[in-house]
Amino acid sequence: MIPVLDVRGLAFAYPDGHQALYGVDLHVHAGERVALLGPNGAGKTTLVLHLNGILSGGAGSVTVSGLPVVTDNLAEVRRRVGIVFQDPDDQLFLGTVRQDVAFGPANLGIKGAALERRVMHALDQVGMADFVDRPPHHLSFGQRRRVAVATVLAMEPEILVLDEPSSNLDPTSRRELADILRGLDVTVLMVTHDLPYALELCPRSVVLSDGVVVADRSTYDVLTDEELMAAHRLELPWGFDPRSIGSLPA
């Protein structure tokens, strides 16, 4: 089976000489929910920006459902890989929720009633259909995060990539977003520092540290491997014990 996401030997240095990735290998198969863990500065965001060709030019390759991420394929790659960025204010830049959610599919050439259907379906999936005519900057942070997810769902991606989906959310919004993500029928790659969130949502975890993948196994195994955790600056919140929760069925 062709993986939805196939990253091989990806290395990248920024123009200022800072090397962020030193040969990353990562495979995500259809229907999986995978957490990408790692300390600050591990190269997680750099990796994410390679998945749809925003960054490129280093060594290695990225393939999305068999389609290589190269300049000629960018339009299709960006439809297949939906990235939800960390700050919803970066993602919601138009006057109303409707325009923002329609932005992606409209760029794909979808118009009229079909576009409207996509917008409303995406908003339904995140429970924000009632806010379709509101300006995004008048919504609460949690609502903006959900609309940001909808802007990407509207493109009907094959894989949803979320950069720190639970950051800055209050506990209720955090839980609501988890319910939404669990209910989606889409492959998910989730970058996060929120280890309990990873355990709750993603059966499998990949640990990125200093630009290389240092672990790729079940989230439960990662979180209970104290040596690995300590070596890569990963820490569970005080009082949280994965053993008392157990592993998600893979």
Partner: peptide
């Protein structure tokens, strides 16, 4: 960052 988010959704 906004530009990245736009490109990611097929902005041309």
């Amino acid at each position: 960052r906004v530009h990245h988010a736009m490109l990611s959704r097929g902005y041309t």
